[in-house]
Amino acid sequence: MKTFGDLLNMIFSGQNLALLGAALAAALAGIGSAKGVGIVGEASSAMLQEDPTKFGKALLLQALPGTQGIYGLVTAFLIINKIGLLGGAPVQLSTAQGAFFLMASLPIAIVGLVSGIAQGRVAATGISLVSKRPAESIKAVTSAALVETYAIFALLISLLPILMFKV
């Protein structure tokens, strides 16, 4: 390593950029889910103090915002697998190719973060529906699950370039 330019080249190697994409997908979508699940958990613990028998229904609502984290994980895993870090020889990537993976990870990273939190909010208000009218709880689940649509679309747009990439 001689110059600052060499340092930059080393840090922003194709491999590292792809890894950065995987990290963003897992981390941001994971944060979204953690926050979302947390919001619902707070609401449901308050309700369960009054009526512990509704645990199952509350748990279903609490699990809903957890999927964004899984989508992020899946994207990260696919990237890591594609660049050969899981068994097999690591693939040599140009900086442009690494950046390609980084870009591809952005939809699920960003939408996962925001939709996880938004879905958590909807599910948390659904908890009060479960506590007052348990028979109608499927409606709360449905409206919370609709928020996830956009995480699924984002996942699709993240996955397609990664799957199409020929190494």
Binding site: V74, L78, N81, T149, I152, L155, L159, L163
Partner: peptide
């Protein structure tokens, strides 16, 4: 969304 959900289930399974 049929495509999105269909692919999501397949890809997560294959992962």
């Amino acid at each position: 969304r049929i495509l999105a959900l269909g692919l999501a289930s397949m890809v997560i399974a294959s992962v």
